[in-house]
Every structure is written in C-alpha cells, then in structure tokens.
Amino acid sequence: MKSTLSPERTELKERWSEFKVINPKTRIRDAAKELNTTEAELVATGIGEYVTLLAGDFRELMKEIGSLGHVMALTRNDHVVHERKGVYEKISFNNHVGLVLGEDIDLRLFLGDWKFGFAVSENDRHSLQFFNSFGDATHKIYLTEKSNKEAYETLVAKYSAPDQGMSLLIAEKTPKPAESDTVTEIDRAAFQAEWLALKDTHDFFTLLRKYNLTRKQALRNAPEGYAYRITPESMKTVFEAASEEQLPIMVFVSNPNCIQIHTGPINKIFVMGPWLNIMDPEFNLHLRQDAIDEAWVVRKPTEDGVVTGIELIDKEGTMFNQFFGKRKPGIPELPEWPALIEKSVSRL
C-alpha cells in the first residue's frame, strides 16, 4: 500500500508539528486558518503514521457505522460544536441524502460533497473524519470506551484507499457576497400571508427562495409577533431555565453537509472565555457567543400549531444554530417552551 508523502505534504507536516508545540491548545480547525491551509490537509499529514486515507462510497460506509456500537457523533461549523453520544440506528439513503434516526444519534446527511475521509488513531483515540471538497469537516465519529474496536478496524481495512499518497485536490472557496438587511422590492403583504399559511417548518426555506430573501431580510419582514430580536446573552438564561425546569429541548447544529440534532433535557451549563457550554455525559455543546450577530425568536405555523424557535445568525447572514422545544410531527410543541422563552430572554 503506497503511503509516500509528497514534498508539499512533508513541508506542511513540519509546520504543523512546530505549530502544535507552540500552540498546544489550538483546535485543528483554527490552526488550519492560521497556517493558511485546510483541516483536511492537516489531517492528511499523518498518513502513514496514525492516519489512513479512506476511499469508496461513503454511503456504504455510513450504513455500517451501527456496527461500532456506542460512539460520539460530532458536527460543527465555525461557531458551534455539537457532540452527541449513542448508537447509529435507522440509517437510510435516498441518493446522496441520508437519515440517521436513532433515539440518541439524529442526523441529516448530505453526502454529495463528502469528498475526503480519514481514519485517525492518535493517542489511543480512534475516529472516522469526513471533509468536503473545500477541506472543511463535514462530520466526525469518535469511538468511546463502549465502542466495538474490532468493527472499527474492519471498517478501516475495508474502505482504506489503495494509494495512501494521493494528493488532496482542494477546491477554492468563492467569497460570499455581502448581504443587505433591507429589501428593495417585495410584496410584503403577500409574503406575510404565506408565512401565516405555512403548514410545515420545512416550507419556510421554499418561502425564502420564492421571495428571494435572506434569513435576516425575511425575519425583518415577518408578520407582527412572529419574529423578534433578543440579546445574544439571552442564550445563557434560556439554557439555565431549561436545565432548571428539566424541559426537553431540541438543539440543531448544521454545516452545508450535515445537520445534527440533540433532543432531551440539558443539565450542566457554564461559560469559559467566549464559549457557552453544555457539558452533559451524553451531550456537549460549545457555542461561541461572540459569533452571534443577531439572535431571533421565530414563530412558524404548522398543521400541529405554531412552532417557536430561537435562531442564531452570524455576521455573514448564515443561521448556524437553532433551538426548539421537544416535538415530533403530529404533536404540538410543549407549551412550557414558549413560556420559558418569554420569561428568559431580553428583547432588543
């Protein structure tokens, strides 16, 4: 099995090693930006030592993840990290769109741009890590002390790439155009009427496309009482109230290639630097409060009644984190959830 590192990868490996000595606590995602490279390329510097390049159809690999037993699923974007322990169950695919619908691990997978995969075994920690064509992490799976290590080794052997020295062809990102908060032309009455006629929360995306609105523009033009801004600091009080009341909530974290959802109560809440954290045995969330440009309470009608959510939006206009009360299709939202929001948040 070929695993010779290219001169470019060898040079990056040396820079990465030096960086880790000087900055031992810097996360690899942040280190990649400082080194003017990508996280996928940094991981690839370990090929031949503690990293194995994976190949094949990642859909087939994901269908076998349940064999690993109890693991930790990790999905993140630039501002929030979502870690959930459990077993991958009820795994299905429709073309490149996948679902994992277990009691604990709940995912929406968009594998059309899952470009690179690696098995990483370092410091007795074993994981499967996937990246898109831009070298950004899409989803990671870490073994726990309860995992099936033999099943992991079997998967790695089965999906190991024949050429471990192949170059990673990383696509270049095009800068996202600046967003305008104001809308020049819109039939506001028609937009609000369609908002009020929504039957499903998922139909909101269709509504934005129809009126060519960004998220911020849509929220600014919401029907009266259906969207209002709150202070970013409100998230801590919402977490603490949910913990105190043991009210089960839903926490959505997304990137372009994966959505990960936690459903259940939360308990241990604390702040460390810019990070607001939930640190429970089976669920961790790390949220950068300083990345919240706007926080909104948003109400959307459905066939089961109004659904109330909190949406966090960054400076580029991207919604990167969502929160709801626990609910399922066909069941109205818990009335305690909007009541908790009303008493916990500070409006702007």
Rank of each mutant, 00 (worst) to 15 (best):
K2V: 05
T4C: 03
P7V: 04
E8V: 10
T10V: 04
K13R: 15
K25S: 12
T26W: 02
K33C: 00
K33S: 12
L42T: 08
L42S: 05
E49T: 15
V51T: 13
L53H: 10
F58D: 01
R59Q: 09
I65C: 11
G66T: 08
R76I: 00
V81H: 01
E83T: 06
R84I: 06
K85M: 04
S92W: 03
N94W: 00
V97G: 03
N123D: 13
S127N: 09
F130W: 07
F131V: 03
F131R: 01
Y142M: 03
Y142R: 09
K149H: 11
T154S: 12
S160R: 15
A171Q: 10
T184F: 07
Q192T: 09
Q192E: 07
Q192S: 11
A193Y: 03
A193F: 03
W195D: 01
L198Y: 08
K199P: 00
T201G: 02
L208A: 06
K210E: 05
Y211I: 02
Y211S: 06
T214K: 10
T214V: 09
K216F: 02
L219N: 03
T231Q: 14
T231R: 15
S234K: 07
E240S: 14
A242R: 03
A242Y: 04
Q260I: 10
I261L: 15
I261Q: 04
P265N: 13
P265Q: 14
I266N: 02
D280L: 07
P281W: 05
E282A: 14
F283P: 00
A291E: 03
D293T: 14
W296A: 05
D304T: 12
D304V: 10
G305V: 09
V306A: 11
T308I: 03
G309A: 14
I310K: 04
I310R: 05
I310Y: 02
E311K: 09
E311Y: 07
E311T: 11
L312A: 13
I313G: 04
K315Q: 12
F323H: 06
K328S: 12
I331W: 10
L334F: 08
P335N: 09
P335E: 10
S344K: 08
S346H: 11
